[in-house]
Every structure is written in structure tokens, then in C-alpha cells.
Design a protein around this nucleic acid. Structure first.
Length: 667
RNA sequence: GGCUGCGUAGCUCAGUCGGUUAGAGCACAGCAUUCAUAAUGCUGAAGUCGUUGGUUCGAGUCCAACCGCAGCUACCA
């Protein structure tokens, strides 16, 4: 018997669970349930990833504490997963005492072993918010192509990658202030020391071949030291022996797997985390992740474990991303579907089955096609598999008191169905679930053909052929039972209903090796109903409606009371229109050249339908002078001209009374 | 730009070591059937295997270039 610890990637504590999360945890859950059916001892833990600047800022916005916010999200996530039959043994949080202790202990072991060092790092600092700015909180001009409004790590326009400190005119997206360059001591994990170890580890079958290729690229390029510290304020664990330094979220996140498992062990008699994590452990550790976090799980994490004297992962299973109808999930298209929205209209097992049909052992992206989703479930599950039980059970009850035949009517068919368990087990083990499902439905096809060939409905009233009818329908039921076993990791709830119908104890994988004979079964009740395409449309419509409500929320926040300080941040100025022109190719824009007293600026205003350019020249308007420049299709707009009205031809520019001069501040 | 992967029927995908006429399911059309949740069975139509060139007796498969798509490009959650 194998002892296996399984994890799926931690979830950011920043919102509800959606299809993408479900994909990962469902595919992990299928693998876990399969292992358990094989009789292996398999534990499945996960957690919310609670730390980071983003958590701190989100809690601030909600007017609550980070702790309260992450705990309520954690409960919501755990409940959503439970309703999708994802059987986590523990769903914990990285913000836990176990994790704090483990992270510090691991860090101290690394430090003692000479695996870490400190260095001064120059970083942009927002003096108003009093924080160092992560790349995503800085915007400025690309140092290579000069495009405006680019984030601190790479340019969307030209694709250049650079340091946030290289940006021209940097500003903080948190306060809109100009950040200053400050130096701070950072702690580094010396990843390069592990290069040889990692080359060896990635060449083993711990990762899929294409992942090994990708890692090879990083490994031959030379590994850089990994910055594992952040300056306060930060939401995370403090680094022992340092002043106001925190562990970077990715340092304690994977340790969160260990912490979640340790927390489970504390509640489970006889389960010891050391048995799984000590270097000579013969237990297995499997991580399931998306391909976006390969570097953390296949470089940093094994190196950290190795450096701290733990065992390294047996295998990291990497999957691709989920798209819907060929495109990224989108709120406005209604395809950014949350777990809870789905559950209001559809059975979770439909989604589990559909994901299963799409699962492979490689890292290709998985596209959910809503029409295909409906068809696959209805024709495979209801039309083929369940149909076998449905068409056979009636004969067994009407003619034979619900009792199955004593012998197997067609040995070849039974051998095929029963013998498939070996190859199917290999496919499940490898994660090639889609192929397994195809073989399972092919078996269902064979069985429906077999029943059609023997036409039990014609012979049921012929006393001479009663035994044949019982034999055919009994074999049908037996193949159905084998198919239920093979599908049970994917469809646990349907399997439970089928077990009740068959009047058997919970089925294990090897039960497919032995047929039921002279066994009484229950009357057949529908195990699975067809999907109505209308219900899928309802989910999409509800998702669109949510997106609209959310944008209204944002609008509401816009009209909430603000203090005079907030108002003071907006620099309103009187400006004179020096020049106004149509913009080639733009239906709604006019390009305005404005005199702001001591300087000039160019503004694109969406007023073309209401105003001709010529009469505007010389006119006084009110502009937001310190609005962040916005790169638009036709150029960069450096401000915003104030106007009222619903739009179209009904736009009315705001003007000052006579006497106002360009450059005057509006207060 | 570099790298990783992908591109086969309307859709989802098989296609092993290069080897006969490129396969399956769904959808579609016709027929049969009525035990079954309008379920099932049989038959059929449907493909320039992204493009071009190369290696070979022979290429969907190997090589090169190009086109298209997705992702990565490390202190990003």
C-alpha cells in the first residue's frame, strides 16, 4: 500500500472560486479518489494563500482586518469545494501558527547552512502610503519604447522587461504620487547553489517532459538568488532576528502545504507529518499546479526542501489553463463563472465529468465549450452509460424478481469490461483521464450493441429463452457496475446512487474483477438527468448580471462621501482651447490643444458628436490637470475636459464665468 | 525578441518504431427498432493532416524555414 500526500495549489484569498480553480481541484480530487479506490492511503490538503500586500490593501478597502477577511473567504472556499465533491482532508490557511513555526524553522535551517545572504536593494517607495512598491503598483514610461502607462516589470507595448526603477516618470498606482528610490536590506535564498541538484531532480520523472524542457531553459540560463523578504508594512510572517522584515508570500506559501498537513495530523490519531517529510521517507508527495507557477514548485520549492533537510516532491503534476468557448474567461461575456453561480442551476457532477473528458497528462490548455459540455454529458453519461442499467433493470425485475443470473452470458464481453481495469488504472495514475473516459464510453457502446444483438425484449415471453434474457440483462448490469467503478473517481455522487441501486457496499477498483451473480438489485431510479441548455444559459446570464452589479458598486463608491483632502487631490484648472481637430478614424473623439497658463497639454475628449471643432477654439473649459496620462489608440491624452450629459449629442461642456484665466485652479 | 507547446473532419480528439485506402465519438442525413430518461443499433456523407521545401523506395509521423494560436520570459499575486 502506498502512502501519498497530495496538494493542489493554494488559492489567493482575494475572491470567490471560479471555473479555473475548480478545474485544478477537481482534477486533483479525481486522482485522489482513484488512489483511495486502489486501496492506497491518500491524504489531500489545500489552503488559502493569505499573505501579501494585496491582502492588506483589500482588507483596508473593506474596512476590516486582514485576519477577519481571510477567514471568511477561507470558509466560503472550503464550502464551495465541498459542494463540488472535492474531498480535501483539510482546507487550511497559510496564516496559521503551524505555518509560521515551520517557515521560520526552514528559514533558520537555510540560514545556518549558508543558503541565504542579505543585500541592499534599491526599490521605489511611496512616501505617502509608507510602503515599498511591488512592480504591479508602479506605472511609468517604458525605458525601451517610451510607451506610457506601463507596469513596473514589463511593457505591454514592446514586450521589454526591466526593473521598476528604470521606468520614466514613475508613479505609485496606490496614491498617484511620484515614488522615491530608497535602499533597504533584503534577504536572499541562494538558489544557484542548488543548480546541480535541480538539474538532476528535473531530469527524473518528477515533472512532465515539456515542463522539464522549460526548466532546462532557466537552468542553463543560470539561476539567480531569490529575494525572500519584504519590508513592512506587509501582511505575513516576520523574519526572525530582523527589524520590520517579512517573508515574501511565496516563501511561506508552499510551506503552507506542510502546515495544512501538520494541522490534519494533529487531529488524526496515528498520523505523523515526519513520516511524509523526512529525507528517507518512502511516502509520496504529489503537487498539482497550473503552468503559471512552475518555477515556484519545480525550482524554489525543491531547493528549499533540499536545503532545509526535507525530502523533495515525488511528482509535480502541471496542467494548462481553462478557457471558455475559445477565449479567456470574461465577466462581460458571462464566462467568468463562479462556483456558487454554477451550483444555483447545474449539478456539479456535470462539470466534473466534462473536465474529466478533457484531462490529459500534458500542459495543454483546456477549452470549455458550452454546447459540447451539454452534448457530452447528455449523450455519454445519460444516453450510453446510465442507459444500460435503465434498459436492463426492468427485465430483471419483471421476469426474475430482481435477481441476477448465476453465470456470465458472454465471457468475451465480460473479460473486456473487467480486464479494462488494469489499463484504465494506468491511465488514471498518469493523469490521462480523458483517454480513460473515451475507453469507458467505448465499453458502454459495446454493451449497448450487445444488448441490441440479443434483443431481450423479443424473447422475454418465450419460456425457452428466459435464461438467455436473464443472462444478457445480468451481464448488462454487471458491465454497468464495472463502468460505475471506473467512473467513480469522477462521479462520486452518481456512484453512490448506483451502489444503492445495485445493493452493494461502496465499490473499490478491484471489484470490477468479479461479477455479481444471483444477487438481488433494487428497482431502477434515474441516476442522472439530462442537462437543459437553458440552465447553462441561466448561469451565463447570472454571471453577466453579477458583472454589471459589480460595476455599479464601483460607481456607487464613486459617489460616496469624500473628505476635503480627497477632493484636494484633484487638480482642476481653467484652460483655453488653443486648437481643436477631428481625429482620423475616431467617431467620438476630438483632439484638443489646451493652454493651462504655465503649460500646455493635449487632451482627447469624447465630444465629437456634440461639438464641431472650429467654434471651440478660444473657448474656456475646466480640465482635470493631474489626471494620469492615458495612452489611447490615437495618442496620449494628458487630462480630462469636464462635461455633463448622457453622451451622444447631449454633451455639455462646463465653462467658467467671464473673467477666469487659463491656469486658475478650481477650488 | 527568445523560449516551451500546439495546429489532423463542422466540434472534441486518437494516430505506436516512418509502411497498404488517415481513425473514433459528438453533430448531420437515411434506415431499423421500441427494453430504456426521444434512450439504442445499422448505414452514409464529411479531411490538400497549417504552408512551403528537404531527407527517404515511402512522410500526418523525421529535418528546415515560414504562418497562426496559447503560455512563459523569475522578486507577479
Amino acid at each position: 500500500m502506498r502512502r501519498i500526500l497530495v496538494t493542489s495549489a493554494l488559492l489567493n484569498a482575494n475572491g470567490p472560486i471560479h471555473l479555473g480553480h475548480l478545474f485544478e481541484d477537481i482534477l486533483t480530487d479525481i486522482w485522489v479518489r482513484f488512489q483511495r479506490m486502489m486501496g492506497n492511503e491518500c491524504y489531500y490538503v489545500c489552503a488559502d494563500d493569505a499573505h501579501g500586500t494585496a491582502t492588506m490593501l483589500a482588507a483596508e478597502r473593506l474596512g476590516t482586518t486582514a485576519e477577519a477577511m481571510i477567514e471568511s473567504l477561507r470558509q466560503e472556499h472550503a464550502e464551495d469545494f465541498r459542494r463540488f465533491h472535492v474531498a480535501h482532508d483539510n482546507y487550511y490557511s497559510t496564516h496559521s501558527p503551524e505555518n509560521e513555526r515551520l517557515t521560520r524553522a526552514i528559514y533558520e535551517r537555510l540560514a545556518e547552512g549558508g543558503r541565504t545572504f542579505t543585500a541592499e536593494v534599491e526599490q521605489l517607495y511611496d512616501p505617502e502610503r509608507k510602503l515599498f512598491l511591488a512592480d504591479r503598483f508602479v506605472k511609468g514610461t517604458c525605458p525601451r519604447c517610451g510607451a506610457d502607462d506601463q507596469y513596473g516589470d514589463n511593457c505591454q507595448e514592446c514586450g521589454a522587461t526591466y526593473d521598476a526603477t528604470e521606468l520614466g516618470n514613475p508613479r505609485s498606482t496606490l496614491s498617484d504620487n511620484t515614488p522615491e528610490l530608497r535602499s533597504s536590506e533584503h534577504f536572499f535564498f541562494d538558489l544557484a547553489q542548488f543548480t546541480d541538484f535541480l538539474k538532476e531532480w528535473t531530469a527524473s520523472d518528477a515533472v512532465q517532459p515539456e515542463v522539464a524542457n522549460k526548466l532546462g531553459e532557466w537552468l542553463t540560463g543560470g539561476l539567480k538568488a531569490w529575494d525572500i523578504s519584504r519590508d513592512g508594512p506587509y501582511f505575513g510572517f516576520t523574519i526572525p532576528g530582523a527589524q520590520d522584515k517579512y517573508f515574501y508570500v511565496w516563501m511561506d506559501a508552499p510551506v503552507g502545504y506542510m502546515a495544512s498537513f501538520e494541522n490534519l495530523c494533529d487531529q488524526t490519531e496515528g498520523l505523523d507529518p515526519e513520516d511524509f517529510w523526512r529525507p528517507d521517507s518512502d511516502a509520496e508527495v504529489h503537487h498539482f499546479i497550473g503552468k503559471d507557477i512552475i518555477n515556484f514548485h519545480c525550482l524554489f520549492w525543491p531547493a528549499v526542501l533540499q536545503g532545509a533537510g526535507y525530502r523533495t516532491p515525488t511528482k509535480v503534476h502541471t496542467h494548462g489553463f481553462v478557457t471558455v468557448d475559445g477565449a479567456k474567461m470574461s465577466k462581460s461575456r458571462g464566462t467568468f463563472i463562479n462556483a456558487s453561480t454554477y451550483l444555483e442551476h447545474l449539478d456539479p457532477e456535470y462539470l466534473r465529468y466534462y473536465f474529466a473528458t478533457k484531462l490529459s497528462a500534458n500542459t495543454a490548455d483546456v477549452d470549455i465549450q458550452l454546447d459540447d459540455f451539454v452534448q457530452r454529458v447528455n449523450s455519454d453519461l445519460v444516453g450510453k452509460v446510465v442507459n444500460i442499467a435503465s434498459r436492463c433493470a426492468g427485465f430483471i425485475h419483471r421476469g426474475f424478481d430482481g435477481v441476477l443470473a448465476a453465470t456470465v452470458h458472454d465471457e468475451a464481453l465480460w473479460a473486456e469490461a473487467s480486464g479494462a481495469r488494469r489499463e484504465l488504472a494506468e491511465l488514471y495514475e498518469r493523469g490521462d483521464v480523458g483517454r480513460a473516459v473515451r475507453q469507458i464510453t467505448a465499453l458502454a457502446d459495446r454493451t449497448n450493441q450487445y444488448i441490441a444483438e440479443h434483443e431481450p425484449w423479443k424473447h422475454v415471453n418465450d419460456p425457452e429463452r428466459r435464461d438467455e434474457v436473464q443472462g444478457v440483462c445480468s451481464l448488462g448490469i454487471n458491465v454497468f457496475r464495472a463502468l460505475v467503478i471506473y467512473l467513480k473517481p469522477i462521479l462520486p455522487a452518481m456512484a453512490a446512487k448506483a451502489e444503492a441501486f445495485l445493493k452493494v457496499a461502496p465499490l473499490a477498483w478491484e471489484d470490477a474483477g468479479t461479477p455479481l451473480t444471483m444477487h438481488e438489485i433494487d428497482r431502477f431510479k434515474p441516476l442522472c438527468t439530462r442537462i437543459d441548455r437553458k440552465d447553462v444559459d441561466k448561469v451565463v446570464a447570472a454571471t453577466v448580471a453579477q458583472a454589471e452589479t459589480e460595476s455599479e458598486h464601483v460607481a456607487d463608491e464613486g459617489s460616496r462621501e469624500v473628505g476635503i483632502d480627497d477632493f484636494g487631490k484633484i487638480d482642476l484648472r481653467i484652460a483655453k482651447v488653443l486648437d481643436a481637430n477631428f481625429v482620423d478614424g475616431a467617431d467620438k473623439l476630438l483632439e484638443l490643444r489646451l493652454d493651462l497658463g504655465d503649460n500646455q497639454s493635449t487632451v482627447f475628449a469624447g465630444i465629437r458628436e456634440a461639438y464641431d471643432p472650429a467654434p471651440l477654439v478660444g473657448r474656456l473649459v475646466v480640465v482635470v490637470a493631474n489626471l494620469a496620462p492615458r495612452k489611447m489608440r490615437f495618442g496620449t491624452s494628458e487630462g480630462m475636459v469636464l462635461a455633463a450629459g448622457p453622451g451622444g449629442e447631449d454633451i455639455f461642456l462646463v465653462s467658467p464665468d467671464t473673467g477666469a484665466e487659463p491656469g486658475m485652479r478650481v477650488t
